[in-house]
Amino acid sequence: MLPILFAEAFNWTNLQQQCITGLTSGALIALIALGYTMVYGIVELINFAHGDLFMLGSCLALTIFTAFGLAQPGAIDSASNVTILLAIACCLVAVPIFCAGLNRSVDYVVYRPLRTAPRLAPLVSAIGVSFIFMNIGLFWVGPQDVNFPDVIQDRNLLGDDANLRFTLKNLLVVGVTVPLMIALTVFVKFTSLGKAMRATAQNPTAARLMGINTEFVIGTTFLVGGALAGFGSVVYALYVNTISYQMGFQNGLYAFTAAVLGGIGNIPGAVLGGLVIGLVQALGTAYIGATWTSAIVFAVLIVILVFRPSGLLGARVREKV
């Protein structure tokens, strides 16, 4: 047993392969983590419903694929590429809009009235919203795991006889997540609304004194975070090909962990945290065993937080009072 383990551990190609897998799922986790971290940054609320929002996005994606007639067994083989591309495009437009709108509405109806209430009140409400979402998901797709149409070929883009595999699916994940993260960074760093978002996160009272409509900014944050979860949910469904009403819990938990790991409230931190967790997941599964994956991920979280309590990139600038 031990020699096999070692042989595996020093297999360079295998390590590289695990890194590709890890970074791919890490990019997905990061996309969800951004929604946690942005909302926390601006209203100091851990939005526990965020993972379930992501789940509902996948449910809508499935409904859209069903509407295009792609969900029945064997339908994909007979479907034209145009139909498939159209269905994907439709998902990438409709699902983010749906998730953004839903997230914004929940903020307006549930969290906004509690803005000045003690911190625990919106937190418990978020847990409540999480359960409501999960039950909607249960009603929507049923209690079992549901196959999501496997429309993207698993062809190796590095050539059929290459040792490493980087498939069209990996490319899809990277091709959607990376531009979104770049767009978000540009938005937050350079646009007037993005700067207002950072200002509101750093000092809401001062932001109001600048003439910033902070409620509008908070609403926009929920919109953006929701849209990112929406994009993530479509890509996840196409990548993993299984969805269930419970998927929001585990993915949300990993994403939340990523946000804390990177330094909650910090946008590059969420991306870094997501990638680290994806890597730890993949390497842990490959070298230690899938049974231990969650344990390893959270052990890493604990170790990092012991040495850097504010996360990898958290609180770089100390405030002078």
Binding site: A196, A199, Q202, I212, V321
Partner: peptide, 20 residues
């Protein structure tokens, strides 16, 4: 207490003043 935006640059702080 001044309420400067601590993680915005000096220039960005000034730009926020002109937000309207």
């Amino acid at each position: 207490g001044r309420k400067i935006f601590p993680r915005l640059t000096v220039l960005e702080n000034l730009q926020m003043g002109a937000f309207t």
